[in-house]
Simulated assay, not measured.
Amino acid sequence: MAQPYPPGARLLARPDQAAPCPTCGTLLGRGYPDCAACAETVDAYWLADWAALLSGNGVAEGTAEERDLAAMVLADDPGAHPWTCDDWAMRRTSCPYCRAELGSGALDCLSCASADQARWAWDHTAPPQAMRPDEHALRLTVAGLRSAEHRRPGVVGFWRLLLPFLLVGRAPTREESRRVRLHLMAGREDELSEAASVEEMAALPALPWRG
């Protein structure tokens, strides 16, 4: 019997530290999903799990059988597959109403909204060891950036700043997140972008008017 809530995004090793992207020049991942190199690096963790699922079911990529498998994954109960496979199945499925990637359409598309809400059942019902905080944050960030045009600019900016550090397994604490958001609201994105770690972003000195 398959393990319920098999972990996701753990087949590939994480990098030891955030490094510049050779294509867009920002920290690797920050250009997601528009930069091809950033997208390839981030998506590799999802694709590794999806490829394992395809192989285990004797299904080839890009076939009608793959589309059928994606539909089966989405119909299964939460925890039947790694969360990465749930996400990738949504990417392989077009919304029947807005035709966008399922779950990434406009906020007024009820089909996409329902699919996006359903994906988080995995996170909420899984046992603690099945998903680490950095994995949940990585999943949330990537899902949000795939529908960035429908999100508030401040939220998108926060996700982009953090993604390179989530890739190395470093999720911010609540206090660090609060401080980074405050700096971002104060228009200090350039300073935040130059930081080499979450700690450095959170440690920017407060502006005088906030003293």
Rank of each mutant, 00 (worst) to 15 (best):
M1Q: 09
Y5V: 01
P7V: 08
Q17K: 12
A19D: 08
T23H: 13
L27H: 05
C38T: 06
V42W: 04
A44C: 12
W46Y: 13
L47K: 10
D49A: 12
D49M: 09
D49E: 12
A52Q: 08
G56L: 09
T63F: 07
D68G: 08
L69G: 01
M72R: 15
L74G: 03
D77C: 12
P78E: 11
P82R: 03
W83H: 05
D87C: 06
C95M: 06
C95K: 02
P96R: 12
C98D: 08
R99E: 14
A100F: 11
A100K: 13
A106H: 11
A106D: 08
C112K: 08
C112D: 06
A113I: 05
A113L: 10
A115N: 06
W122D: 03
D123N: 03
D123P: 00
D123H: 15
D123G: 01
H124M: 05
A126N: 04
P128D: 14
P128N: 14
Q129C: 01
M131D: 01
R132I: 00
P133L: 12
E135S: 01
L140V: 09
G144P: 01
E149D: 00
F158M: 14
F158Y: 09
W159T: 01
W159V: 00
L162H: 10
L163K: 08
P164Y: 04
F165T: 11
R170Y: 12
P172M: 13
T173Q: 04
R174S: 10
R174P: 00
R179W: 07
L184K: 14
M185P: 00
R188C: 07
D190T: 15
D190M: 06
S197K: 07
A203E: 08
P205E: 05
A206P: 00
P208D: 11
W209V: 10
W209H: 14
R210D: 07
